[in-house]
Structures are given as C-alpha cells and as structure tokens.
Simulated assay, not measured.
Amino acid sequence: MTLKVGLIVGREWSFPPAFIEEVNGRDQGVTAEFVTLGAPRMDEPCDYAVIIDRISHEVPFYRTYLKQAVLQGATVVNNPFMWTADDKFFGAALATNLGIAHPKTVVLPNKEYIPGIVHDESLRNLKYPLDWEAIVEHVGLPCILKDAHGGGWKDVYVCRTLEELIHHYDTSGLLTMIVQEFIHWDHFIRCICLGQEEILPIKYDPRERKYHVEHDHMSDALGRRVVDDSRKLVQALGYDMNSMEWAVKDGVPYAIDFMNPAPDMDVYSLTPHYFEWVVKHMADMAINLAKNPRRQDRALSWDGLFTGRRVAAEVGGAAILGTGTAPETIRGAADPGDAPDAVVDAEVEQGHS
C-alpha cells in the first residue's frame, strides 16, 4: 500500500513543489501531495501517514485539525501539542537547564487584558508596580523586548535606556513580553535542524538578513559545540523541523532564537546551495517517518512533548538530556529560517533576536 505524506503550507512557492517532486521521484512507496480539508469530523480517519505543517501558527483551524490527526495515527511535523505549548520564556529556561548558554531573560505581566479582567480583583497575584530598576540591572542595557509567543520579526525592540524599555512595554497591549540580555556578537550562525538529528550550521548576517555560502566559518571546536547544543535543544523540544540562531561572543555560542518550527525554506533566502540540502533531507525525513511511525501515545503525552527522552536532574542541579549516539563528525558543517526574530531596528549594528 502506498503511504501518503501531506503538506500544509501558506504562500510559499519554491519549497512545496520541490519537496513533493523529490518525495514522488524516490519511488519508495511513499507519495507527497497538498492536504485538502473541508470540515473534518471528530472521528474522521486521517489519509496521511505524515503531515508536514508549515502554517498552522497563522491559521488556527489547521492546528485544531492536526491535533485530531495525531489522534488518528498521523505523524505531524511539527508536534502540534508541543508547538501549542512552546514559548520563548520556556525555551530560555529549558536551554539554561540543559547547560546551554542563553541570554538572561525575564518575563513580564501583560500591559493590558481582555474585557472582563478587573485589575484589583482578577490580578491579585501580581505585584505592582514592577521593579524596573531591578529588571534592567539583571539583563543590562541595551536589552531586547519581544513577544514571548511571537516570531517573524514582529514586536521586537532594542531598548537602550530604561525609558525606552518602559515606553515599548506600554505599547505592547495584550502581548506577553520578555526582556532579554543583548549579546554583542562577533559571529552569527543559523542552524537548520531536521529530523532531530541532521544539523546544518550556516553563516548568517542578520544585518543583511542573508545566508552566506562559506563552509569554513567556524573552528572545529565551535562547530562541534553549536551542532551538539542544537541537537540537544531540538531533541528536548521534539521538533523535527526547526531553525536555531546562535550569537557567538568571545567564542561562546548563545542560543538566542530557537522557536522556529516553520523555518524559512525559500530558495532565495537559503540560496540554491542550502535549498537543495533542505529539500533532500526533508524528503528523507518524511519518507522515514511514513515507513517507521512513532508511537502515538508518546505524541499525546507530556513525555511525548520531549519525544520520549527524559530530562533528568543531576545532584548538582544541572539538567542532562539522553540523546542517544552522537556522530563523530559534524553533520552538515562542511557539506555543500525561517523568518527569524531578528531586530528590525535600522540603527542596530549588531543583530539579535
């Protein structure tokens, strides 16, 4: 029986047809096509062994359906339960618990609330006013203010003074914002992470918003650390399709943005060189998942949010991740996102997300 891979996309034009053609051209008993949905019933079987989700963060109906598809036995990339639960503050805490360098991060109460919230009754658990001086002392200046659930360069501000920080917070409305340490980087890397194993680190300039085809941009030690830390994070999150950004300062890679479960895969963004790698490895992953489905009880449980791997605390308090066997060489590092949360401020000479 032929297994089917379904693709849910938005306005993308280059990746979808290339991916479908690649899967269908393999002649491995797996075909790919666009998913077509009407009004699914709660017990309706899913026709697909695998569904690749590229747009449910913008179309809530898709996310609602994809959770039902998991229940019906489909493997969804990415896990819609984890994607629903994820946010940048959780990511900061997770990276820190895994021993990965991350900018200091503070989450702020919302500035505004939906109708029906009575401030002196509904918000009795909140301190007021906020200790802005302590926040700035902790993260330093300049700092980054951004939406904890956002992406695509939206609602990201570089704040050079306390007054700027408070001003932008006061305009944040219903968003939950985080304040983050600004990393003055001297090297910037974006990794494309596929199948929780394949990691392709690419030189990236957020000031130009451009990938550079330059294979020797990292030392062996830096490359190994970036790839190992990327794999550790993506396996903890359980994402099969993600991009991660690393700001390197004094030889230390800081994970500054890794909540990109629908990474940019456009041929003009990636360059034809890296686009070919992405299409090939996405097809490899989709075919493998179609033929070797994961246990659905894992996907439907909290443990499944971490792909069945355990994050265990050592006596000293550091968290470790059981990741299985790591390759001796850096996959993709020397081989021939997504819309990042890079700073839009034109005055910023150093990118940060």
Rank of each mutant, 00 (worst) to 15 (best):
E12Y: 08
P16C: 12
P16Y: 04
I20W: 14
I20V: 12
E33R: 07
M42E: 15
D43T: 12
P45Y: 08
R54K: 01
I55F: 04
E58H: 12
V59N: 15
R63P: 09
T64C: 05
Y65W: 12
L66W: 08
L66I: 00
A69F: 04
N78A: 03
A85E: 06
D86L: 07
D86Y: 07
D86N: 01
D86R: 02
D87F: 01
A93E: 11
A95R: 12
T96R: 12
L98R: 10
A101S: 13
P103M: 11
K104V: 06
T105E: 04
E112C: 15
I117L: 06
H119W: 08
D120G: 03
L130Q: 13
A134M: 10
A134E: 08
I135P: 01
G140F: 08
L141E: 06
C143P: 00
I144W: 13
L145T: 04
H149R: 12
G152T: 07
K154I: 11
D155P: 02
V158P: 00
R160T: 15
T161P: 10
L162V: 13
D170Y: 00
D170V: 00
T171D: 08
T171Q: 14
T176S: 06
V179F: 05
I189A: 05
C193K: 03
C193Y: 09
C193P: 01
L194R: 01
Q196P: 06
E197D: 13
L200I: 07
L200W: 11
I202W: 07
I202K: 00
D205E: 06
K210P: 02
E214L: 08
D216W: 07
H217C: 09
D228K: 11
R231G: 12
V234G: 04
L237T: 04
L237N: 03
G238N: 04
Y239L: 12
D240H: 10
S243Y: 02
A247V: 05
V248Q: 04
G251W: 00
Y254D: 01
I256E: 07
D257E: 05
D266H: 02
T271N: 03
Y274E: 01
F275V: 09
E276S: 11
H281G: 03
A283V: 02
M285V: 13
P293F: 05
P293M: 06
R294N: 02
A299Q: 08
S301R: 08
W302S: 03
W302Y: 13
F306V: 14
F306T: 15
T307A: 14
G308T: 14
R310D: 15
A313V: 15
V315N: 13
G317T: 07
G322F: 06
G322H: 10
E328C: 14
I330D: 15
G337M: 10
A339I: 07
P340M: 01
A342Y: 14
D345Y: 14
A346H: 11
A346Q: 14
E347P: 07
G351H: 09
